[in-house]
Each structure stands twice: as C-alpha cells, then as structure tokens.
Amino acid sequence: MDADALIQAIASSADRRAFAQLFEHFAPRVKGLLMRGGTPPDLAEELAQETLMTVWRKAALFDPAKAGASTWIATIARNLRIDHARREKRSRLSQVYEILEEEEGPEQPDAVLAGSERDSRVRVALKGLSKEQYRVVELAFLEGFSHQDVAERLSIPLGTVKSRLRLAMAHLRRHLEDLR
C-alpha cells in the first residue's frame, strides 16, 4: 500500500476508495497507539475516527517531502489528543502545533530526506532496537513522559533510562544520517 499516493488521491479527486483503504489500515493502528498511551477504548475509537476524518479534510496540506504518511497521521492523532485533553481549559495549544506545521521552515528542500524515506528508515531502525530500548523510546517519545517518570513506570534507575535513550537515539540518527 502506497499511503502517500492514497492521501494524494483524496486531495486531487476526493477518492472514497483511497480513503477506505487508508481507514482500514490506519484507524485500528491509531486506536492501538492511543490505547497503549492510556486512552480509554471508547475515546480511542472516537479519536481514531476523527484522525482519519482529518486526513480527508486536510489531504491537500499533506507534504510528502516533510513527513511520511504514518508520521503525518501520528501527528494528527497527537493534535486531536491534545485538543481533547485540554478542551475544558480554553487551551490554544493545538493552534500552536498547527501554525508550526504550516511553516515552510527555513530548511533547504534538497537537504531534507523525503518524508516517506525518513519513515521507512525509522521503521528499519526501530526493528534494530532491543525490547527494553523500544519500550523506553515509546514512553519517552510518544507518550512524552519525563525521564524520571519513565524510570518510575518501569522501575529502573534514571541512569538506565538516560543511557537506553541515548543509545536508541544515536542508533536512529545513524540510520537517518545515512542518506544525507
């Protein structure tokens, strides 16, 4: 499945079959991701559906040079989760994330790894992590726990968290640097 092409088909011709394919692939994964982060199943279902609906609405803004499809979809799910968590507090934080995503960015386009290439490199790199490293990466990078909180949740020393993350990050960056 070429997710980049499916999103572009939605953008160019409101392609409902492309949407159905994306939905079947990504909605259950977004739901799983949210549930691993502690979101209750009902809410995870709702946010996963909203995530894919946002993909439909914003398909024209998808820029495969900036982020691959899974990364883009993961950031949409993240923004919706923030929105939901802070809805009562008049938070404007999701607008801040949106403004940043609209930014063209001062980076030279030819110096950037294409988003889909970056995504597949990261997938390969993640397979090279030990189970322990993977869990620490998941807690620190996806769920955004501080190093101290990760240490407490996994009942391991803070130094161990820091060294696992340092090694994992170095490993990931090595894979990403290869193509530059």
């Binding site: 990504f26 994964r29 799983g32 279902e45 559906q49 899974s70 799910a77 997938r123 993640l126 990403l176």
Partner: peptide
C-alpha cells in the same frame, strides 16, 4: 521531525485494535 518520525514508525508497526466503526 526525527522524533515525530519515531512516532510514525511506532504507529506503523504497533499493534492494531479493531475499529467498531467503518470507513
């Protein structure tokens, strides 16, 4: 963006939970 790509990678190979609603 590197860190967000890690999020994308974890999404891509993470466990799927069946949806109750459809496309």
């Amino acid at each position: 963006r590197d860190i967000e790509a890690v999020g994308g990678g974890v999404l891509a190979q993470g466990e799927a939970v069946p949806m109750l609603t459809s496309a």
